[in-house]
Design a protein around this nucleic acid. Structure first.
Length: 551
RNA sequence: GCGCCCGUAGCUCAGUGGAUAGAGCAGCCGCCUUCUAAGCGGUUGGUCGCAGGUUCGAUCCCUGCCGGGCGCGCCA
């Protein structure tokens, strides 16, 4: 019996009471159930009686008793107590509880999937690193979180497109090209150019690919370096992200907005909504209509479009591609954008609270040898995705970066994460999976196979009951994490599940010792262990972390 | 000045209005001739920044303070 089944039983009980005229309320479509921390409060608890007390004009405990009386008749329910101010403390029969193991094994990879976001078409934009430098640590956090979120949203039934915006237009590309050219000629880095070893490497590669490039006139050489440098950088970015397990569905070029006329189209679309005007020779968007502190320029007096105009065109393009939700994942240093993006949506006639969603994440602070390392692309002191992966591996990197909420600043201590101790929770979770895999191998060696038969009532130990309860939470955790856009909830859940499994393992022997024969209890526990393995594997997969068979 | 984020155990951090606020690390004491000890049990550790408000009930929601981080451009 899953928590959803229990919730349905509670709803059914309330409906029955309402139908019998015992409760003068409209029966709710759904009730919230929680897993009490205290075992004495039952397997599940509901506060529904407290909530219905006011509309029913009855005392909460009285309402609780009415519901409890009906709920006790529902199948799989062992007992229902009304406790404290009016909580319903629900206990399941052991068979109903144990049956969950069969449900999970039958669902396999699909266990945890729901349809809670089935109607959503979501565009998820993250990383969007400038192609003027390598993917650094800050981007890497977004890569880990964003890709986990993509997987989560899909598990919740949403139609998701992951997207990486490429800033391949504008002044920074000129600086980039000039920096490459200077490096190739052995000249110092130009004013406001990019430094760092990668510049010299890319420059050398460009020279290698295009003999004679250094003989071109300055302006042509700059363009050639810029274009080939861009291509090489994009290739390198895709490669490092792919090595990190992150593949974007779409790489969207800013330049394509300019070349396709999308910006003019967007300006006209905004004009049609009545928010565009001309002043001082420039074209403005009246964002103050929607609470911005000043209007924004779309087209400068010299005829050039602004970055803001490109942002607007990009947003409008996303909406025209049919996405009802455009999710942006931005670093805290870009949070000044939030208001502007929201006003773009409002000016386009959309609902900024529905069609656009901006997730702001605090930056990663990096500590090495007890001292903070400043990240600066221009100064060339960068910890790149590759460097991080080389130090700790993909699994540890992805897991560590995804286990904190995006809006809480995190400190990543390179020395600490480099040390492969159990300071790093990913090992704790993976170890639980490897331990199960080992146990299942031993079972096979002993000639014990999990048969079709399961007597769920045998899973009666307190540790087994704890484990079943934890396994039952998984679909709700996934749906909740997807809805709240908080992948870290999955990681925290897995840590807690791994702990529950380790305690079960410690208390409940699964395989027979010596020449003992396998029993029905052995069988039942093999079902439970396999169910746990499935949930651990599914959860790790959502985070893009491997579930090892051996460690 | 305006705006966003944060303040929870010695440290790093969880906690979507529920019952006695949790985990890891650090510290102390135990458990391997039996399924992986990368594990388990026990123990020490709290004015949930402060003050009001809403509520049957607030770490959570609202207001005001205090402390810390970040951002404001016809830059990208």
């Amino acid at each position: 019996m899953t928590p959803a089944d229990v919730a349905s039983a509670v709803v059914a009980a309330i409906r029955a009471a309402v139908a019998a005229g015992e409760l003068p309320v409209d029966a709710p479509d759904a009730v919230t159930l929680e897993r009490p921390k205290n075992r004495e409060h039952g397997d599940y608890a509901s506060n529904v009686a407290l909530q219905l007390a006011k509309p029913a004009a009855r005392a909460p405990r009285e309402v609780g008793e009415i519901i409890a009386a009906r709920l006790r008749d529902q199948p799989g329910i062992d007992s229902v107590d009304v406790a404290g101010p009016g909580f319903l403390n629900i206990r399941l029969s052991q068979a109903a509880q144990g049956e969950l193991a069969r449900t999970i094994v039958a669902a396999g990879d699909d266990y945890g999937r729901t349809e809670t976001l089935a109607k959503e078409r979501i565009n998820l934009e993250f990383v969007s690193a400038n192609p003027t430098g390598p993917v650094h640590l800050g981007h890497t956090r977004w890569a880990a979180l964003g890709d986990a979120l993509r997987r989560l949203l899909q598990a919740a039934g949403a139609d998701v497109t992951s997207e990486h915006y490429v800033n391949d237009a504008g002044a920074q590309m000129q600086h980039f090209g000039a920096s490459l050219l200077a490096a190739a000629r052995g000249e110092p880095t130009p004013e406001s150019g990019y430094a760092g070893d990668y510049i010299a490497e890319v420059a050398a590669r460009v020279v290698e690919l295009t003999p004679g490039i250094l003989d071109l006139p300055d302006d042509e050489a700059l363009i050639a370096f810029r274009e080939q440098g861009l291509e090489l950088m994009l290739e390198a970015m895709k490669e490092s992200l792919a090595g990190f397990g992150v593949d974007f569905d779409v790489w969207f070029s800013e330049r394509s907005l300019h070349e396709s006329g999308a910006i003019e189209h967007a300006v006209e679309a905004l004009r049609a909504q009545g928010h565009v005007y001309e002043s001082d020779g420039a074209v403005w968007l009246r964002t103050t209509d929607f609470g911005d502190d000043k209007d924004r320029v779309l087209v400068r007096s010299n005829g050039e479009t602004t970055y803001f105009a490109a942002d607007a065109a990009y947003y409008i393009n996303k909406r025209e591609r049919g996405f009802n939700r455009c999710v942006y994942m931005l670093g805290a240093d870009h949070h000044g954008y939030v208001g502007r993006l929201k006003t773009i949506a409002a000016c386009a006639g959309d609902d900024p609270d529905v069609n656009i969603e901006v997730l702001i994440g605090q930056l990663v602070k990096l500590v090495r040898a007890g001292e903070e390392v400043r990240l600066s692309k221009r100064a060339g002191t960068i910890v790149t995705l590759e460097e991080l992966v080389e130090a700790v591996g993909v699994d540890a990197a992805r897991y560590t970066l995804a286990r904190y909420p995006a809006d809480s600043p995190m400190t990543l201590d390179i020395d600490l994460v480099t040390r492969k101790t159990n300071d790093n929770p990913v090992f704790y979770v993976q170890y639980a999976h490897a331990r199960i895999a080992s146990l299942l191998r031993n079972a096979a060696d002993l000639g014990i196979a999990r048969g079709d038969d399961l007597d769920p009532s045998l899973l009666a130990d307190e540790r087994e009951s704890d484990l079943l309860g934890a396994l039952g939470e998984f679909p709700r955790i996934v749906a909740g994490a997807a809805e709240l856009r908080e992948p870290h909830r999955v990681a925290r859940y897995l840590e807690s599940l791994a702990g529950t499994y380790h305690r079960f393992y410690d208390a409940c022997r699964v395989l027979p010792i010596g020449d003992e024969a396998a029993t029905d209890l052995t069988q039942a526990r093999l079902w439970l262990v396999e169910a746990t393995r499935i949930v651990l594997a599914n959860g790790l997969h959502l985070l893009g972390v491997s579930a090892p068979e051996r460690m």
